[in-house]
Design a protein around this nucleic acid. Structure first.
Lengths: 342, 342
DNA sequence: TAGCTTTCAGAAAGCCTTTTCGGTTTCTTT
DNA sequence: AAAGAAACCGAAAAGGCTTTCTGAAAGCTA
């Protein structure tokens, strides 16, 4: 690393620089560059060339100060490392980035104090709105109703029904998963899932049981709750096979669990998917693609959750306020671990 | 989702509101709130209470306009989904978030056009600096020297040596990995790694070979390049065992490869770590923790890369300009897959 | 009490842009 | 050619804040 004397960075050009170079007033320069009428085409051209030459970029701070909207939104996440926040964040960034909106990223690390701090800082910067991204689908404390800007909660809904939240439809996710297995001709279906303290685990199980009941079936054993890990998948499968060696499908609460399940199935001589179909949740590429065979999984469409949140916020900024919990449907991504019974 | 008429969101309080409530001029109010002298303690107190009552938050847009610094930086990433960008991003966000700086997040999706677009937008918002985060350690095109604000490149260095880049030390990473295996008493070490088009793969291999040579050893077979996948790990291991059944350690270019390697080793009856030690790169928790046994891996300290980038940018904004490539050392995280030979 | 310093408050300029509105020039029209 | 219309341009204000500089009041000394 070599210290060096920087080239004196010249201040960025201002509108008055452009106006001076083009030989017009500031007002005319502004109108020319903003495509407004009341400027002769020839004059406009001169201004545009001047702006070009000076690499002029209008100062958004000044514009924001004037028009009362900063053109920025705050994205408040509770855990950047969490793999659920990122796709949502991408979707939101995507939906905004296309337009004229820039996104402030803040990570509260699950700490309410830090979150409060970030909210204050963002309000000081006059963001036009806020998206709060959670890391699990359980409700989280509302930021309150007294904020001067609209707020949309994504993935983790607010506990205040008066707020607007966008979440994946976990109940439906459980249902469509079972329906896929039924469509493959499976009838002896078990469910191994994760931490019972997670609403997502409960809701998926609920949806799955409903779909089974609708088909006049009962699950093979009760749904088994445990942890979101491969280890639990392995342990639960071992127990399950001892009691119900005749099962023909296992619906897993996560892709990690599914990997553990598949490992034990293979070790015990059950073929996937010929003997037993296996299916996961989350559609986490690195796991679904690498497993043998590739794993069918339910994708939560998190990017779409992010985009929907961005659009809702956009609407709210425009004055269209909504409230309640809006759900986004999940989808089954079919791979080799599920196939019709031949 | 229920449409509703929003409560008319009151405009945030301004300094002049505070001044009026406190019965002073806005100049005095400003000085009182900013802890400047020339204000009687009693007056200051009155102003502070007024500000409190109105929930006054100074408008950073106005302040930025005035002082010529916005207190914001742009974080330009090329792939948000990439698992390498995120920790760096966290580190940077962390280093800034503590202070008075807010971070604009932009994802260019690996598209140069979009990147250029984002740079322009950020400059329009008068960011004080830019951090460019890449998704692999190969050099990337510089944004150019003509930017009005300092730029720091993280993970992927700039191809212009006059820019400042912060990257993990991949050569050293290869070296310390081998040194760990040597310290475990291993001497017949093979290297299975990923895509040879990645500089990281080349440099890690180089460091590994150097460390072996320094110990007077040669690798078991040549380093095998392939893909960063479990499948390649499995395939390469099968080939390797056929030719060199006597090896006692495999250094893998990634955790994914390592998982494939361990699977095949186990299937063929080699115990890990008793017979063969296995070690990966990236220290990706979900893989290292779930494998059997837990995987020893080299952590690239990416958060530290992000923090270092943020600090460097901070310095550059303050006028201390550096250039060249600065490296951050990696570290070995020891788990069950490597152990001393007994 | 006159003259000095010290302490504190406020007026005003400035940051950069947009927009309104009044003023000047050019073009039509009869 | 003169009046009216149209086209074009610029002065100025506004937005919220910080800072400098001026002014006033209070406290001090002789």
């Amino acid at each position: 690393m070599t210290p060096a004397v920087g080239p004196s960075r010249s201040q960025p050009a201002t509108l008055s620089d452009v106006a001076r170079l083009a030989g017009v007033s500031i007002a005319t320069a502004s109108k020319a560059l903003n495509g407004r009428t009341q400027v002769r085409a020839e004059t406009r051209q001169r201004v545009i060339e001047a702006a070009e030459r000076l690499a002029f970029r209008p100062n958004q701070l000044a514009r924001g100060l004037l028009v009362g909207r900063s053109g920025t939104v705050g994205l408040l996440t509770s855990d950047l490392e969490g793999r659920f926040s990122i796709p949502i964040l991408m979707g939101a960034e995507d939906a905004f980035g296309a337009g004229e909106v820039a996104v402030f990223l803040c990570d509260a690390r699950g700490d309410a104090i830090r979150e409060q701090h970030h909210v204050r800082a963002l309000l000081g910067r006059r963001v036009d709105g806020l998206i709060v991204v959670g890391s699990r689908t359980d409700p989280r404390p509302s930021l309150g109703r007294e904020l001067p800007v609209p707020v949309v909660y994504a993935y983790a809904p607010s506990d205040d029904p008066d707020d607007l939240s966008i979440v994946p439809d976990s109940v439906d996710a459980g249902r469509i998963a079972v329906e896929h297995l039924l469509a493959c001709g499976r009838t002896r279906i078990a469910h191994i899932t994760g931490d019972p303290g997670y609403l997502a685990a409960q809701e998926r199980a609920e949806g799955a049981l409903t779909a089974l009941a609708d088909a006049g079936l009962a699950p093979v054993g009760e749904p088994r709750f445990g942890a979101w890990s491969e280890g639990w998948g392995r342990a639960a499968t071992a127990l399950l096979l001892d009691r119900h060696p005749d099962l023909d499908a296992v619906l897993c609460g996560s892709d990690q669990i599914a990997r553990g399940v598949m490992d034990v199935l293979r070790e015990r001589g059950h073929r996937v998917p010929e003997d037993v179909a296996v299916m996961g949740f989350d559609n986490w590429q690195v796991l679904t693609a690498a497993s043998r065979p590739p794993l069918t999984s339910v994708d939560m469409n998190l990017e779409q959750v992010g985009r929907a949140a961005a659009h809702a916020l956009f609407g709210a900024i425009g004055g269209v306020r909504h409230s309640g919990v809006e759900t986004v449907r999940c989808r089954v991504v079919i791979r080799g671990s599920t196939a019709p019974l031949s």
